[in-house]
Simulated scan of single mutants.
Amino acid sequence: MAHPVRLKLVNELVLGGAATATELAERVGESPANCSWHLRQLAKWGYIEEAEGGVGRNRPWRWVPVGNRWGSAGDSPELLRVGAELNALVLSQELALREAWDEQRLAEPEPWRHAGFTVQNIAWLTAEELAEIETAIVAMTVNKYGERFGDPAQRPEGSRPVRLVAWAHPAR
């Protein structure tokens, strides 16, 4: 997962639905052969799978909705380092997308122009309370709206993909 092309491919599958390596190559600016190789690697680890309706090289792939967490307590030092690198890569991409939102915000329709937000706060919490917050965020996003990924009929009129990024860590 810790490769910029793989992150782009997964993002395209999440937002655009099932697609072939050739279709994805056009969207992410890579060759179909390179995309095909990265798609097979993603499938090997269960992040994506072949979608129905493919024949030969014209095989569509689809995202497998799973939560991702890298570098959890109890992992080896190597896995913790890899998790930290992947988190840094994901956050840098998300921050770039957030900056792009600021640049194009005024071109958005009025209801969307003010819908995006940034929240920054500091709270005195126990480890258990912080875990409760994570559970609540997952419940509010993935659990409540997760069916909309696989079934476009579940998406309300006027809805669009919204990026939600949250992180929490003890302050120094």
Rank of each mutant, 00 (worst) to 15 (best):
S72Y: 05
V142F: 11
M140W: 09
L164N: 08
Q120A: 07
E49R: 15
A84S: 09
P65G: 01
Q41N: 13
A19R: 10
G74F: 00
E26F: 06
L9G: 04
A33D: 14
E103R: 14
Q120V: 08
T126K: 03
W112H: 05
F149I: 15
G17F: 03
P77Y: 01
L91Q: 14
E12S: 14
R40N: 12
E147V: 13
Q104F: 07
T20Y: 07
R6L: 10
A18D: 09
L80H: 03
G146P: 00
L125W: 03
E49L: 03
N34R: 12
R62V: 08
L91S: 14
N121E: 10
C35A: 13
T126L: 02
L97W: 13
V55G: 02
P111N: 01
L79V: 07
R6G: 15
N34E: 12
H38Q: 14
V66K: 15
V14N: 07
S159G: 03
A96F: 02
Q120R: 11
W167Q: 13
P4K: 00
E157F: 03
L24G: 03
G17V: 06
A2W: 06
R172Q: 15
W112D: 12
G54D: 12
T141M: 03
W70G: 01
P156F: 02
R98H: 09
R163V: 10
R59W: 06
I48R: 01
S159K: 03
A107P: 01
L80P: 00
A19P: 01
R105G: 01
R105L: 00
A136Y: 05
L89A: 11
L15W: 02
A171W: 14
R57F: 09
S159E: 05
W112V: 08
R6P: 00
L86C: 04
